[in-house]
Amino acid sequence: MKSKTSLPAVFISPSMIVLAVLAFVPTVFAINIAFQDKQLSSEDSHYVGLANFIALFSDRRFLNSIVVSLTWEVMTVVATMCIAVLLGILMFEAASARMRNILSVVFLIPVLMPRVSAAFVWKFAFHPLFGLAVYPYKAITGQPLDLLANPSTALATVAFVDVWQWSLFFSVIILHLLESLPHEPLEAAELDHARTWERYAYVALPMLKIPLISLTFVKMIESLRSFDLIYVMTRGGPGIKTETLDMYAFSQGFIESGNISYASSMAVLMMVATTIAFTALWKRVHA
């Protein structure tokens, strides 16, 4: 083999240059705008130092949106992983090979649907008057049930749609992971009269520790993308009960005030927080 070839440089450089330009230019711009008082409506702007960031920390809507975002993140990640593991195990235990093939296609439908579509489908299903999902409740109690307008259920209802999209998809991955395990340890546990749940809790799942952590990591990243669902289903409402950080940044920058700089300072804080958190997590997992 010729040890000197131009291939790696020729093949890698263009991609890295394109990605670096596309990622760094907006990032630098975002930081730059965050220190100004730029409005969507006017051309000129001035540097205002840290004013935007200082204002953020006395902005109750901003603090609310942090709480909403964190709640969303915990709810969707935990529910997705629990349901996916449980459903993956149930399929592994009870479904025939043919059934598994069918299910691993069927369970991809929700995640492949555009989030806007999923949001609409469920918004209509939860419609208090004509919705299919709330129909049984209505038929039994005679009362309408408006989950999306109720401050205490709205966020969980939107989160349900996210979990619907991701947990079924992840359960297919977990099924494939279980299928890839060697049979001997599970059979040995069975011979030792381990109960079904013990075989999974103490044998199978610990063997899948690393892929399960990676899946959780992926879901944590994807859960940051709550905007589409919330935008279509509640627009942050009722009140600000479902207003996540990206929803609030969007409404500050575009809907209400056109305050691009203020929105940008929020975006910069989000960027810093997610980059630090996920880089630290990644380094820990891959250490």
Binding site: I33, F227, A267, M271
Partner: peptide, 15 residues
């Protein structure tokens, strides 16, 4: 993928 989409979209709009 960690970059929040808003953080990309806001400056890009200006650009």
């Amino acid at each position: 993928r960690f970059l929040p989409p808003v953080a990309v979209a806001i400056p890009l709009m200006v650009i």
